[in-house]
Simulated assay, not measured.
Amino acid sequence: MTSRTLRTLTVSTAAVALAATAPAAHAAQAGQDTGRRVPAVAAAWARAWNGIEPGALGALFTADGTYTDEAVGMTFRGREEIAGWKARADTLIDDVHVTIRTARLDGDRITVRAVYSGHLKGAPKPFAVPMTTELDLDRNHCRIVADQDHYSLATVLARSGLPADWTPPTP
């Protein structure tokens, strides 16, 4: 075994050990490739996107919280609309998945760098694109007040094998 292989194996083993011992409030997000801890609300946000219950996403927000998807130019207000956005995404995209790469808490804001992936229904190929999300938190850091997702819709469509003017089917 080369020294480089041994170093890589040691770092990987250390990262696995760190993830296994992280406190529940800061549990590492599955698929995360850093050894840093993810703030609990950010980890819950990713789990909600990766899950099948739309209400789980809405429940993370304050009653008057907002969710803005900058790529599609839409904002949703309140838990019910936010849950509806997740439900709509699930009807359009198979295997929606968010993999957190980094999450940094600064004051009342968490900046999440992630990979957003899935397979648009009817598209020839699945997509995976970089995404940055800003989560503004309430003063107790328990609920999300505002979410702003930033990713390239043009890149999603291109990687999916769809034309740039593609629009989702009406439900």
Rank of each mutant, 00 (worst) to 15 (best):
residue 161 G to A: 05
residue 162 L to W: 04
residue 38 V to P: 01
residue 9 L to A: 05
residue 4 R to P: 00
residue 6 L to N: 08
residue 134 E to L: 00
residue 65 G to Y: 03
residue 111 T to C: 09
residue 86 K to M: 13
residue 50 N to I: 10
residue 80 E to N: 09
residue 91 T to H: 03
residue 167 T to P: 09
residue 13 T to D: 00
residue 156 V to K: 07
residue 70 E to W: 10
residue 43 A to D: 03
residue 25 A to G: 10
residue 74 M to L: 08
residue 109 R to L: 00
residue 54 P to W: 09
residue 93 I to Q: 11
residue 145 V to F: 01
residue 31 G to C: 09
residue 43 A to K: 03
residue 78 G to E: 12
residue 37 R to M: 08
residue 165 D to R: 09
residue 170 T to A: 06
residue 69 D to N: 13
residue 89 A to N: 03
residue 120 L to W: 05
residue 143 R to T: 03
residue 162 L to C: 04
residue 148 Q to R: 02
residue 44 A to Q: 12
residue 118 G to E: 14
residue 109 R to H: 08
residue 45 W to K: 11
residue 98 V to A: 13
residue 46 A to N: 02
residue 30 A to W: 09
residue 54 P to C: 10
residue 50 N to S: 02
residue 135 L to M: 02
residue 56 A to L: 05
residue 140 N to V: 01
residue 115 V to Q: 13
residue 99 T to D: 15
residue 26 H to D: 15
residue 24 A to H: 01
residue 44 A to E: 11
residue 84 G to Q: 04
residue 27 A to K: 08
residue 154 A to S: 14
residue 32 Q to T: 11
residue 28 A to K: 15
residue 76 F to P: 00
residue 5 T to R: 10
residue 68 T to E: 13
residue 109 R to E: 07
residue 27 A to D: 10
residue 8 T to N: 08
residue 109 R to I: 04
residue 95 D to V: 10
residue 118 G to W: 04
residue 126 P to D: 04
residue 15 A to M: 08
residue 117 S to Q: 01
residue 110 I to F: 00
residue 90 D to F: 14
residue 49 W to H: 11
residue 107 G to F: 00
residue 71 A to C: 06
residue 62 T to S: 08
residue 147 D to H: 12
residue 83 A to G: 13
residue 53 E to H: 09
residue 79 R to T: 13
residue 73 G to S: 03
residue 134 E to N: 11
residue 34 T to F: 13
residue 33 D to K: 07
residue 123 A to H: 02
residue 90 D to A: 03
residue 97 H to G: 14
residue 31 G to K: 09
residue 9 L to T: 07
residue 34 T to G: 14
residue 87 A to T: 11
residue 84 G to N: 02
residue 32 Q to I: 05
residue 130 P to H: 10
residue 148 Q to D: 02
residue 99 T to I: 01
residue 74 M to R: 14
residue 133 T to Q: 05
residue 99 T to N: 12
residue 11 V to R: 12
